[in-house]
């Protein structure tokens, strides 16, 4: 079970605002899904290595050679707010 405080903590980590009724609903929905997921807890997996990629490849490094950059207008084109050729945001310290 995931309670209200945990929902609020996780929402904060995920930077999601939740209304009061959304917090309640989320607690219920997540708990229900976690109940199903909890079944993997029954498996004996201690000696099993984790898999991230099924076909294991290594390296795939890129030579240290420049590629063209985006023109600044293009980089800034989709930004919600621009100033001084940069992306304008509320100050983190404010």
């Amino acid at each position: 079970m995931i309670d209200r405080d945990e929902v609020l903590h996780v929402a904060r980590l995920a930077r999601l605002q939740l209304d009061e009724d959304e917090v309640q609903a989320m607690a219920g929905e997540l708990s229900a899904v976690l109940d199903h997921i909890a079944r993997i807890g029954e498996l004996e997996l201690d000696d099993v290595p984790p898999t991230t990629h099924v076909v294991e490849v290594t390296g795939r490094l890129r030579p240290d050679e420049p590629r063209p950059c985006l023109p600044r207008e293009v980089a800034l084109e989709q930004a919600p707010a621009v100033q001084d050729d940069g992306f304008l945001v509320p100050s983190p310290q404010a």
Binding site: V7, A11, A14, M26, L43, L45, V48, P50, T51, T52
Partner: peptide, 25 residues
Amino acid sequence: MLGTYALSAGYYDAYYGRAQRVRTK
């Protein structure tokens, strides 16, 4: 929310770590 919870401190091994092992199986 589900994914953030599963990766958050104290839950990684029980969820993400385990799920990757299930993947191996």
